[in-house]
Nucleic acid binder design. Structure first.
Lengths: 228, 228
DNA sequence: GTTGAATCGACTGTATCCAAAGATGAAGGC
DNA sequence: GCCTTCATCTTTGGATACAGTCGATTCAAC
């Protein structure tokens, strides 16, 4: 950005606010804006080549999504990714993911299984030479696909919590290739249940998948002090 | 509002944006702004005595909460309360309420049961001379209490979906005193499980409580055509 | 060493201007 | 008669400038 908006982009059609929110969101996800760092309106608007008017609306959106916290008269800062916060986010994710999986299973659309199958293939591709960054992305992709396939608009809006837990808190919740392999296996079990049209099983498996992560993280809770 | 902001309100301390969002939100909840109606920026800012800048941020918040839909270059309109949409919202609510109840039960704080007990008493008070409006409010209060007692910030942010289903869609999901009495009984069962510290039971009961409503509404799905 | 005032940086809110996008309706062509 | 097209009008979208307010820091005074 920073200049392409001025004369280029003939037919964007997407509101600038959404675009801004997306760009900032992505930069938080990719750690370009570190957790806990301050986002200055003046600086951001200059950096993105926009005025503060749409920027403030974008920040308001991200605040609502839980990605940043707007402190009145002080500014906005990227959410800090300490372990207790992460665990609380995962608690919500467990039931969200469970519900989404159940709805997809109950819709019983063969295309769902195929799409999710390809997503799992993509995940496997990040294992052989272990690519943590690509794995994280493919993991997010899988869960976002499930969410969107549920075709429940209220559920789709919860998408932020998935990327929050899986990407923003990545340094906290870092996994190795062994844990990744286990996670992919659990994904496949969920997809099998979806293919079978077994809603309750899909929900149980998807939820257990996240709760396994919770248990794993909670075991570290005493060992590692909350990183500042 | 409309004049008290200009010279009065010496130490509000809460940002205007939040105040605006709260006022508009409340007016949607209380049907002052009907579902499906357009919210004009110019008119709203005049009506509330504020400029368009903070108003637009407030609208952006409400859009994110799902209360209104901002159509680019066209304006914002209050969400339309048709039955399919309501059912989708309830699907999410079922797992949200279930999780909240479980967390409260697991926290095992005696004060929780007492607070919720009083909330139920308040609900019973709206039955004898049947007061639909008061009942709806007391019903929302009960569920909001559970949400807040969970002490999970991510869960608390889901508060909007409770009021959306219970208040905005009230005309669609209208209940009579008989259904209300049943609902209060189910509330008491949830509180009993919370008092007993039985997390899984609390979750199962709270979730079944909402799902009973879903089943009830779904039976109307063919009978009543979506009201415009 | 603590208290308190001054200052500075940053956000908050207002007002105004202009551009762009939809909606509307009338005129004109088929 | 119906459809298209063009002009217009309303409303939102975005930029800019300016007046407040809040918080944190600093520095002097006690």
């Amino acid at each position: 950005m920073s200049s392409e908006r001025t004369q280029a982009s003939p037919a964007t059609s997407v509101p600038l606010v959404e675009e801004l929110a997306a760009v900032i969101r992505e930069r938080i996800y990719t750690q370009r804006y570190a957790t806990g760092s301050w986002l200055r309106q003046e600086q951001l608007s200059a950096e993105l080549g926009v005025s503060r008017t749409p920027l403030r609306e974008a920040l308001r959106i991200l605040d609502r999504e839980g990605l940043i916290q707007v402190h009145p008269s002080q500014g906005a800062r990227v959410i800090t990714g300490d372990l207790p916060t992460l665990l609380k986010a995962y608690e919500l994710r467990a039931v969200i993911d469970g519900l989404a999986a159940r709805l997809v299973a109950e819709r019983n659309d063969p295309a769902s299984g195929r799409l999710l199958g390809r997503a799992i293939e993509a995940q496997l591709g990040t294992l052989d030479p272990w690519e943590p960054r690509e794995y994280t992305q493919s993991n997010v992709d899988f869960h976002e696909h499930v969410l969107h396939l549920s075709e429940n608009e209220f559920l789709v809006k919860q998408s932020a919590i998935i990327r929050l837990t899986a990407q923003v808190f990545a340094p906290v919740a870092l996994v190795g290739p062994d844990a990744a392999r286990r996670a992919i296996g659990e994904h496949r079990a969920v997809v099998d249940a979806i293919d079978a049209g077994d809603g309750p099983a899909a929900e149980r498996l998807a939820r257990a998948h996240i709760e396994a992560t919770i248990t794993q993280l909670r075991s570290r809770e005493d060992a590692a002090p909350p990183a500042e």
